[in-house]
Design a binder for these strands. Structure first.
Lengths: 210, 210
DNA sequence: GTCTATACGCCGATAGAC
DNA sequence: GTCTATCGGCGTATAGAC
């Protein structure tokens, strides 16, 4: 009985491990690809390199998980935007005012820049439509539509200046993203966190109703 | 005597035409490459396409003018930065205050966005280090060093807030460049000129001493 | 699901006539 | 200085054994 249970336990563990292995191989590929794309760009990264970095000695293994190189990038793009979208939902639920919601988003972006710079490089630096020409432009994805709505609410509520919401977007994320881009490329030498509070203030002041 | 002069005249004209042809062929290649790079990116553009667009039926003609594909991009980069640098010198000569000099630069960038969008796409949208890895980062080129100096002067003169000049740069050109990027990609639907005065104000206010 | 081996195409680049 | 012709190589992608 005990032995049987142990066997079952062992089987379950094996299954978990197998499942993990499957997931891990796929994830290893995605992770390796993200890193390489962020470092050298999509076109400078060969499938051979991705395979190596993922711990497989072979491009064929990669082709078993993904139709082609583009499909890897597409999946990365979807994953990143999904998790961004979920985070934004969370932020909207926990905060009422547009200013607070934007503050939350800024907090998230700065954290990501320090903790997952490759993700932010993918979002801010790579020219996505060069290798994902059929994907929707970022501004039309759920995450960014929600940001647009936050801005609209802020204007309606009198928190934000009454100008074209798209210009508000341009000002606010112009300051935020450009700063983060400079952190990512090393033009600014401290980590993102060191700049966060002052950059937030500058960005918010650029769009806040006086 | 008259005939001789006519002949000489004809020869000179021929020479001029030939010289023009030489210059034009090279320029045609550069122009075609600029357009194609701006439209589809460096890696999605083949030398065959550049040759066709330049009015030559052949890549060999291109190779006669440039060592390789990279050399075309390098030349484009140098030309654009040179003319930018010259324009900035001109602006600095004609204006005293940092605010006026920055205003002049903004004016230039907005004009370029409407009149030479491909040049601005090359500067703002393309990921240059992906295909020009050995080139100096843009911030280290003469044109941008001068902009940095303008900012430093403005801080010294009390026109601009006393913070890290690099952050001033991030704020100011964050707003300017992000707006222009959105014009270039169509996210903002009017031409750049329609936004210029208000965007200038927003960018200047983000860095001006209150 | 990962390996070996291999096919295939495209594109960058060169040689040489004119 | 532009043409025809052609090479070589890399990188994507597939077939098939294990």
């Amino acid at each position: 009985m005990e032995q049987q249970q142990e066997e079952i336990q062992a089987q379950v563990e094996t299954q978990i491990i197998e499942v993990q292995d499957k997931a891990e191989t796929r994830d290893e590929i995605l992770l390796a690809a993200l890193k390489l794309f962020a470092e050298k760009g999509f076109f400078n990264t060969s499938l051979t390199e991705i395979a190596e970095a993922a711990g497989v000695k072979n491009t064929s293994a990669v082709y078993h998980h993904f139709k082609n190189k583009q499909a890897i990038a597409t999946q990365l793009f979807a994953n990143i935007l999904d998790s961004l979208n979920i985070s934004i939902d969370d932020i909207r639920r926990k905060n009422q005012k547009s200013s607070e919601q934007l503050r939350g988003i800024v907090d998230l972006l700065f954290k990501l820049t320090d903790d997952a710079p490759d993700v932010m490089r993918f979002l801010l630096i790579l020219k996505l439509d060069e290798f994902l020409p059929e994907e929707k432009p970022m501004l039309e994805t759920p995450a960014f539509i929600k940001i647009y709505k936050i801005i609209q609410s802020g204007i309606k509520a009198g928190e934000i200046r009454s100008i074209d919401p798209m210009l508000v977007n341009a000002y606010f994320f112009g300051i935020i993203n450009n700063t983060l881009r400079m952190v990512l490329t090393g033009a600014l030498d401290k980590n993102a966190d060191a700049y966060q509070s002052q950059v937030w203030l500058a960005a918010w002041n650029a769009i806040a109703k006086k």
